[in-house]
């Protein structure tokens, strides 16, 4: 009966005081309540997992097969669906609700979200290049500089860092500390920043690497 993570929304950031009077930056997340939509079993699907849904969605916005999927589970249509692996003997069944009480104060979590899109960005913003000296007649400002050698190898190496589309990609920040949990409001208060814009969809999971 322990789900490893939750789906939610990024609400925004603020600052709070610690007990010894220091300010720390925190992000507020609305995590859950997530509803179990499907229980995948080793016998039926080849692996053990639960599929959970989060957020409201109008019935008329669902395609018929998707609507049927929710009807079979006996839950209202959800905006997003996501699977979490569980143990074989896990008792979660369709219709069960999971809230922020799976986390407690002091836990470490990994938070995934879709980062803000930066459009077509240059190498300074995208790859942290240094850029040129700018003034004193250098004529070298924010350009990428040389992209390779001459007749040998007579090509640009694959994976060369160049300008291009930046952001709007899935990003995970690992090992963030939970400052506060408010199960009655489905709120998680997390120290530090989280990927994406306010109001963006995020996934919070128990950390895979950091201190427990």
């Amino acid at each position: 009966m322990m789900l490893k993570g939750l789906l939610g929304l990024k609400l925004g950031m603020t600052r709070v005081f610690t007990e010894d009077g220091r300010w720390i930056p925190v992000t507020l997340l609305q995590a859950g309540p997530c509803t179990v939509v499907q229980r995948k079993t080793r016998a039926n699907d080849g692996y053990e997992a639960v599929q959970v849904g989060f957020g409201e969605k109008k019935e008329k916005r669902c395609t018929k097969p998707v609507l049927q999927h929710f009807k079979r589970a006996g839950v209202a249509p959800k905006r997003v669906l996501k699977e979490f692996k569980v143990d074989d003997d896990d008792a979660l069944k369709p219709g069960d609700e999971v809230g922020t009480d799976i986390f407690k104060k002091g836990d470490r979590v990994d938070v995934s979200g879709l980062s803000k899109g930066r459009g077509f960005a240059g190498v300074i913003k995208r790859h942290n290049f240094g850029g040129g000296p700018g003034g004193h007649g250098s004529n070298f400002h924010r350009a990428p500089g040389s992209v390779g050698a001459s007749a040998d190898p007579s090509e640009v190496v694959k994976g060369k860092k160049m300008p291009g589309r930046m952001g709007n990609a899935s990003v995970t920040i690992q090992n963030l500390e939970i400052v506060d949990v408010m199960p009655e409001k489905n709120l998680l208060v997390i120290r530090g920043a989280v990927p994406g814009a306010n109001g963006g969809m995020i996934m919070v999971k128990h950390t895979v690497k950091g201190a427990k």
Binding site: L11, G12, M13, T14, F17, L28, L187
Partner: peptide, 9 residues
């Protein structure tokens, strides 16, 4: 909600 939480602090 963010302002509300901020106020509670």
């Amino acid at each position: 909600i963010v302002q509300e939480y901020a106020k509670s602090q």
